[in-house]
Amino acid sequence: MVNYYIVIIVELYEKVMNRRRFTKNILIAGALGLTSYPIFKWVSINKNVSPDAFRPYANLIDELAETIIPRTDTPGAKDAKVGSFITKMLVSCTDNRTQNIFLQGLNDLEEYAHDKYNHSFLECSKTERLATLEHFEQKSTYRFNVLNKIENKFIGLPFILNLKRLTVQGYCTSQVGVTKGMAYELIPVHFQACIPLTPGQKSWATK
C-alpha cells in the first residue's frame, strides 16, 4: 500500500514538474521576446480557436486516423472520412480548452517526429507512425486510473486519447464503418438472446 502511494506521488510530481518547466519556458521565451517560440505554447489554454485553425492539419489528421484504424480487409479511417469528422467535432462539439490541447498535441507530435526521425509525421514509415503514437500514449497515461481521471477533469483529456476517441467515434458512426467494419441492422425485428458466434463475427455497431 505504501508503495502504491509513493508511485502515485512520484508520478504526480513528474507531471507537475513537466508543467512547471513548460510554464517556465513560456515565461522565459516571453521575457526574451523570442518571436520564433511556437505560438501555440504562448496562448492561454482557454483562448478562442478559429474554426479554420484545423484546416492546415487536414492531411496530418487524416493520416493519424488511418494509423489508428487502417484499411485491412475492411475499410479504414480514410475510407470513412474520419479526418473531416474529427475536425468537424473539434470545431462544433468541443470547448476551447480541448481545441487548444488538440492543436498543441498536433504540433508536439510533429516536433517529436522531426526530433526522432528527422522528418514530418507524414513522411514517417508505418512502423515509425505507430511508434510515435505509442510514445504519446505511454507519455499521456498514468499507471493509476485515478490520476488519469484527475488529469482529465482538471486539465483536459490528453491529445492522444482525444484523437483516439474521435477517430473511433468517427469510424464507428460512419456508413462504411457501421455497415462494413462492423455488423448493423436498422430494424432487427427479433431479439435472439443467446446465439453462437459465427466465424469472423463482427460486433454490433449500435446497442
Binding site: E134, E137, K164, V168, Q169, C172, G181, M182, K202, S203
Partner: peptide, 27 residues
C-alpha cells in the same frame, strides 16, 4: 448484460490492426 462493443473499448491501448480488431469484434 452485454458484450463489450466499441463505445466500451474506445480507450483500449494500442493502434493499428490489433486496435481495429478490438473495437470491431465482441469483447
Amino acid at each position: 448484460g452485454e458484450r463489450a462493443e466499441w463505445p466500451d473499448r474506445i480507450d483500449s491501448k494500442g493502434f493499428g490492426n490489433d486496435f481495429k480488431t478490438k473495437i470491431t469484434t465482441p469483447g
